[in-house]
């Protein structure tokens, strides 16, 4: 592509079922580190590849 360079293809891709995943085994987000603010993007999944990642549904 000439105009766009894709750096990261998001974790949530077409190809998986559209439903909620989540094994619940990861820590609460602020609890074991900063204690004052909530960020989830810096947390790793406890079961990489095992949980369902959700697709964004396309209408057409």
């Amino acid at each position: 592509m000439r105009h766009i360079k894709t750096l990261f293809e998001g974790a949530f891709k077409p190809g998986a079922e559209s439903c909620l995943g989540g094994c619940g085994e990861c820590p609460s987000s602020c609890q074991s580190a900063c204690k004052t603010s909530c960020t989830v993007a810096n947390q790793k999944c406890e079961k990489i590849g095992a949980h369902l990642k959700v697709r964004a549904k396309k209408s057409n």
């Binding site: 998001g10 974790a11 960020t39 989830v40 993007a41 999944c45």
Partner: peptide, 19 residues
């Protein structure tokens, strides 16, 4: 801490909807 992101192995959608 707040600049740490993991695009490939981040949390599932349940976690992202209620952290």
């Amino acid at each position: 801490f707040h600049f740490m992101f993991d695009f490939g192995n981040g949390p599932c959608i349940t976690k992202r909807m209620k952290g």
